[in-house]
Simulated assay, not measured.
Amino acid sequence: MRELPAGLQASLASGVTTLARCWRMTRRDGAVVALTEHDEDLAVDGTLFRAASGVTGSEDASALGFAVGGGEMSAALTSELIDDADLDAGRYDGAGIELILADWSSPSNFLLLRRATLGEVRRSEGSFTAELRGLSSALNMVRGRLFTGGCDADLGDGRCKVALAAPTYTGTGTVSVAEGPGLFVAGGLGAYAAGWFAQGRLVFTGGANEGFATEVKAHTVTGVVRLELWQRPPLTPLPGESFTVTAGCDKRFETCRDRFANTLNFRGFPHMPGNDAVLRVAQPGGQ
């Protein structure tokens, strides 16, 4: 059973509830955004929780065993606290959440109710709703190696050993024409064949999107070079913005052999029988 602080216990026993929930979000870059459902800002546990965004929260669900519990929180999108650009850039992905119950008449009386991580975020009409995942969600992450036909190494890492810094595998270019939030005509990549950078990693090195990185969805050459990104940058790329992009790898043995000449370091099991072999039945005259 959780013990309540004496001050908070006395407040609850008085028969008059002066409670407010507070959410403290700590991003992976260390930035802290604190929100409260109270109608005024609250200073709790050394943090100023802002009331300007009209934050609300759902019921907090939990379950026995290793089932992932959690809830939701909703708030308005404001340029001062949380805006579309921050969410698009992934700055809140995996942020740590602390849910605190505080006595707004005496903020020194508070209780940490739950810790969670930020999950899926939905947006509509100037507001967002964020999923709060319980700490047990970390148990769903894959640990160790996977026995699959495809390679489980990341291109260029210590197990793959491909030297991505070589000009053959890394290109530098600039945005020529933006045709959409995640689609643009690229300059400086004319020496590379179509599809060479598909599933590769693109990082903006200049302009308003500097530092933003994402995977390349498609690389086409039809008179001009076009790159389509899986995740749109915080701002629509402008002509002249520079970037670097690495060759893509689809994890197949043939790609490792033919594109990278890296057969010895392939980390998959291309000859492992698949489901078709497991489900195959004996046939007269068959093997």
Rank of each mutant, 00 (worst) to 15 (best):
P239D: 07
A10N: 15
A43S: 15
G173L: 02
T148S: 12
E215H: 09
L146Q: 13
F243Q: 00
D39H: 11
L189V: 04
D250M: 01
R115K: 13
G187E: 04
D250T: 06
F212S: 01
Y192E: 08
G7K: 15
P181E: 04
A163H: 06
D88S: 14
R50W: 07
E72F: 08
S136K: 15
N265K: 03
L264W: 11
T263N: 06
L189E: 02
S58M: 12
F128N: 00
G187D: 12
L42N: 00
R232I: 07
A165G: 10
G182L: 09
G144H: 05
P181L: 10
G15Q: 11
N109A: 12
L112K: 12
L48Y: 03
A218D: 14
F147C: 13
L238G: 07
F260A: 00
D154W: 08
A194K: 09
G71Q: 05
A63L: 04
G119I: 00
R91W: 12
L132N: 00
F260Y: 14
V68D: 04
E241P: 03
A130D: 02
S137E: 07
F269V: 00
Q287R: 15
P181R: 01
E72D: 12
V216Q: 05
T246Q: 05
L118E: 02
I82F: 15
G285I: 07
A13S: 14
G70L: 08
V33F: 10
G207L: 02
R114Y: 04
